[in-house]
Design a protein around this nucleic acid. Structure first.
Lengths: 154, 154
DNA sequence: CGCTAACTGAGAATGGATCTCAACTTACGG
DNA sequence: CCGTAAGTTGAGATCCATTCTCAGTTAGCG
């Protein structure tokens, strides 16, 4: 396939910044990787690789499944996204910026919120002191129900 | 297969308590479920269903894979065990008692430690207040390196 | 323009988890 | 003690997200 079929940017998100960061390391900025990054950023919630693949196929029917999976993995490596484990042994991804922070993932609507570091830090200290255990900073995401979804259940 | 082939208890763990709790709800205490529960309790660390299945097969070659998977799921439902998502989209299980608590899972040796509720509670309060988000209590497990494994890396 | 290493797509392969179903067992009431 | 109903079991088939393979393509650099 010709990569020139891609390359049309939707006018949302921080396209410029995405564009720059995609070329990090020894990495090439291909049209496919741009599409994947933008689709994830536009979603504004956690999506599984499969879900994202299906969304993208609507506008780019020829993109390969493996390409989407690979692009997502690279984004995680390059700190442009983070990965969650959703129920059913499925990975879900959310776009995020390089600054360090943690996430609140709503298990109902998949919307994601950031938590400030200072909410988490005291607990890390306490765990370290009481249990001599170094919590993996990258794995600190919390799952639960956001206000909206909690309202619906009542 | 005749269930009478099972039923020999290793003299470890709190066999009596396991035995009682296996019969909770409308549930039957079968020899297979006893074996699975005891094997998990004896492991004293997180094991994937597959790993546990293989361990059990050494002494009970005829047990079915699905039986082990089902038994583990039931144990989670009955609060005799909890489930983690390990890297690679694999579930791991650890035996635990009904009292409420959270876990520190060492991503290197898979050993599991309990965290006291009072270490976690302040953070839950802070998250609730700052973000109006109800963290799922059951999903509060932390991953990282225990003191022993941290020592080895240096 | 020409090289080369990175990337891509299609489909096959992988592997943990789940499903199906007939045979078997446990628990319980009589 | 027996019969029955409903929970369980084992073996294998099946599912399905993910990963792998490989030939063909392309970005980026000189």
């Amino acid at each position: 396939m010709s990569n020139t079929a891609f390359g049309l940017y939707p006018q949302s998100v921080t396209t410029a910044s995405i564009d720059t960061r995609l070329a990090a390391g020894g990495r090439r900025r291909t049209a496919q990787r741009v599409v994947v990054a933008e689709a994830l950023a536009a979603a504004k919630r956690a999506l599984s690789a499969q879900e994202l693949y299906e969304r993208i196929r609507e506008t780019h029917p020829t993109i390969g499944r493996a390409t989407v999976y690979r692009a997502l993995e690279q984004q995680v490596e390059d700190r442009m996204a983070s990965r969650f484990e959703r129920d059913g042994h499925v990975s879900a991804y959310i776009a995020c910026d390089a600054e360090h922070h943690h996430h609140l993932v709503c298990t109902s609507c998949q919307r994601v919120d950031d938590i400030a570091e200072d909410v988490v830090a005291p607990m890390l200290t306490a765990v370290g002191r009481r249990h001599d255990f170094a919590v993996d900073h990258a794995a600190l995401d919390f799952y639960g129900l956001c206000a909206r979804c909690r309202g619906k259940r009542r």
